[in-house]
């Protein structure tokens, strides 16, 4: 059931690869095609990614952190928060060999959905794509942050009060929404209430 659903969705996905390394882009394209993804765009830097996002209905972005002119963190921030961003909800997977803790934290705070270390394994990439596309976390809009809910787990021993003044807004990626670009049978009911996280 899940395999069939995944295969159907993957055939429809428009994926954008952002990586300055030509060999890495070749490998990624081959792996994504093996997963069943047919529509794959590629670009070498952040500026190219912005152009692609403006011209095509991209469903998922796989980006390196270390890019020329605009790094993967700045690119993610622009996608999420720029006033003229064409696709602020697009799932973003950061795939990089730069795995220092502060970079992972910056990626999370820039609104990256999933972080994956190079060198890649096919299984790890597949799991991240499934997670970003099929199990997307609700998006949070707050002052200074726009992106997937950074709270992945309930803290069992947390004794303080709730810091959010409202529950996060639940917005689903384009592929889940009704209308053009949606996968038949996959659409989820979006909670379109306008509550936004006001504070953390």
């Amino acid at each position: 059931m899940h395999e069939s659903r995944n295969a159907q969705a993957f055939e429809r996905l428009n994926c954008l690869i952002v990586d300055g390394n030509r060999h890495m882009r070749t490998i990624l394209k081959g792996v994504l095609r093996a997963f069943g993804i047919r529509h794959i765009q590629e670009t070498t830097d952040g500026a190219g990614a912005i152009r692609e996002l403006k011209s095509l209905p991209i469903d998922i972005v796989i980006t390196e952190y270390a890019l020329d002119t605009l790094d993967g963190i700045d690119l993610s921030k622009l996608i999420r928060t720029a006033s003229d961003s064409s696709n602020p909800l697009v799932p973003i997977i950061m795939l990089t060999g730069h795995t220092e803790r502060h970079i992972v934290a910056q990626a999370r705070d820039a609104g990256v959905n999933e972080f994956l270390a190079k060198p890649i394994s096919a299984e790890a990439l597949y799991v991240r794509i499934i997670s970003a596309v099929f199990n997307p976390r609700p998006f949070v809009k707050a002052k200074g942050f726009m992106g997937p809910d950074r709270r992945r787990h309930q803290l069992k021993h947390y004794k303080g009060g709730e810091q959010r003044v409202a529950p996060p807004e639940l917005i689903m990626p384009r592929i889940w929404q009704e209308g053009e670009g949606a996968i038949p049978g996959l659409s989820k009911t979006s909670d379109t209430n306008s509550n936004s996280e006001q504070a953390r």
Binding site: H23, M24, G97, K118, P119
Partner: peptide
């Protein structure tokens, strides 16, 4: 970095 990115995928973890 270019060498690091690929080595481990192809069973050359020391390169990475």
């Amino acid at each position: 970095q270019a060498l690091q990115d690929l080595g481990g995928t192809f069973d050359y973890p020391l390169i990475s």
